[in-house]
């Protein structure tokens, strides 16, 4: 696995260890939060899908967001990345407020997301998928498009970087195939590689392992871990408990839109509230699942 392509980014050696002094309580402050959200609320009709009092995500760590179906994980993702508006509350990425920013502006700040249903751009080739993600392309302006000599150099540089990423995600042999011909697992890999192509500071993965075979899960996990080791902050939603306990530095548990617990995997494993939430001792309000499914 090569990491040359990420050489430009400052590695944050073992920064996830800096969580050691943080107490495992909901809303705990982190030493160096990359993402912060306070008082975030989002309701659909009478149903409150998300009501997060305070949440911080430590820079350079893998943070898992878990919770039963309908807990509001996807809604929280959408709200934080500008794909949905929040009714009230504030969020800040690297200390700068994200208030009122639309999805593409949030992405330009370096907070890049993927989707629960993989969004490979099926009738574009794998390489085109990658090149599309590169930042600040002159040729992407309508007038600039007519002056290929201006953007040709930039395009070549992007292609080189894309090639390295495809190599790393073992997709290089598919570069000229249309993305629609990839298998489900390869699409997940492509989506992750494409997100990396846009040089994110933080990447938010919505169920990256859903519907992926066990062998590929292992390789996806390695990719996520190596991202963290290169200094990218990762926040991901997942259901598979083994996966979560295995790679997360920190776990945030959401139930009925609220953060009910957070902590290291060991803290979460033994947390009675979490067990209750999963086993349903805490009674779900009727229709509480609608918000996420309705997305």
């Amino acid at each position: 696995m090569s990491s040359e392509s990420m050489a430009g980014r400052m590695p944050a050696p073992e920064s996830h260890d800096r969580l050691s002094g943080v107490s495992p309580v909901p809303g705990a402050a982190k030493p160096d939060p990359v993402l912060r959200a306070s008082g975030v609320r989002r309701s659909f009709g009478g149903l409150t899908a998300v009501d997060v009092e305070h949440l911080e995500v430590q820079r350079g760590t893998i943070t898992a967001l878990i919770g039963p179906n309908g807990a509001g994980k996807s809604t929280l993702f959408n709200v934080l990345t500008g794909f949905d508006r929040m009714d009230s509350g504030v969020s800040a990425f690297q200390g700068r407020s994200l208030r009122g920013l639309s999805g593409h502006r949030v992405a330009r700040r370096g907070l890049v997301r993927t989707f629960q249903l993989t969004k490979a751009l099926t009738r574009l080739t794998v390489m085109e998928n990658m090149l599309l993600a590169a930042r600040g392309q002159t040729g992407e302006r309508m007038v600039g498009a007519f002056a290929p000599w201006i953007w040709r150099g930039q395009e070549a540089a992007n292609r080189e970087r894309a090639e390295a990423l495809l190599e790393r995600f073992r997709l290089a042999h598919m570069r000229d195939e249309i993305a629609g011909s990839l298998s489900g697992g390869q699409r997940k890999l492509l989506e992750m590689a494409r997100a990396l192509m846009s040089e994110p500071t933080m990447i938010m993965l919505d169920e990256p392992m859903a519907g992926v075979n066990p062998v590929l899960v292992q390789s996806l996990l390695e990719h996520i871990t190596s991202l963290r080791d290169e200094g990218v902050s990762v926040l991901f939603v997942e259901h598979d408990m083994d996966v979560i306990m295995g790679i997360s530095d920190w776990i945030v548990v959401l139930a009925e839109g609220r953060v009910i617990a957070e902590g290291r995997p060991d803290d979460i494993r033994s947390n009675q509230q979490v067990i209750d939430a999963y086993l349903g001792t805490q009674h779900d309000e009727p229709g509480a699942g609608g918000a996420e499914e309705g997305r």
Partner: peptide, 16 residues
């Protein structure tokens, strides 16, 4: 062409 395929994916890559 990306927008034709899936506009949310393109938005998530920072395109207006």
């Amino acid at each position: 062409k990306g927008i034709r395929e899936d506009e949310d994916a393109v938005r998530a890559l920072g395109k207006n």
